[in-house]
């Protein structure tokens, strides 16, 4: 009986663990209150029409090196502190745009949340990010 009991326990545990391991990467939230969500075209319009806009690439630096949105700076969400951000955006009313790889990348939303916490007023969030940028054949800067 004990053998059966333990076997069942192991099977259930394994099922549970497997589920955890194989779980898909989570999606970024659909909306982020306090931010303005934009797509690729709107990003281009913003860059063209808003010279002060600070575009932050929240991906890893290696990814940034391979190609990024023209004029963007590389600052991953984990490395982003108030101090570092303040270097680029000393003014809290500075417009900032965050992007990362796409819907399954949480870096841009995390960074945007941080910026919101630090009272930045004008935050743009390019949720679909790099995937949409490349897919639409937008210019890539290296």
């Amino acid at each position: 009986m004990k053998i059966i009991y333990y076997s069942l326990l192991i099977i259930f545990a394994e099922l549970f663990l497997t589920h955890t391991v194989w779980a898909e990467k989570p999606f970024a939230p659909k909306t982020l209150p306090g931010t303005i969500q934009v797509n690729a075209e709107e990003t281009v319009e913003l860059i063209m029409n808003m010279p002060n806009l600070l575009v932050i690439d929240t991906r890893k630096e290696t990814e940034y090196t391979k190609g990024h949105i023209q004029g963007s700076i590389s600052l991953s969400d984990t490395e982003m502190t108030l101090e570092k951000l303040s270097q680029y955006a000393p003014n809290k009313s500075q417009a900032i745009l965050f992007y990362c790889n796409g819907e399954r990348c949480l870096r841009s939303s995390n960074a945007a949340k941080k910026a919101l916490k630090w009272d930045y007023k004008l935050i743009y969030w390019f949720r679909t990010g790099w995937n949409e940028w490349v897919k639409k054949g937008m210019p890539i800067s290296r």
Partner: peptide
């Protein structure tokens, strides 16, 4: 017009 001018064409 606008942003679409920045797109590549094939």
């Amino acid at each position: 017009q606008g942003a679409s001018r920045s797109q590549a064409a094939f």
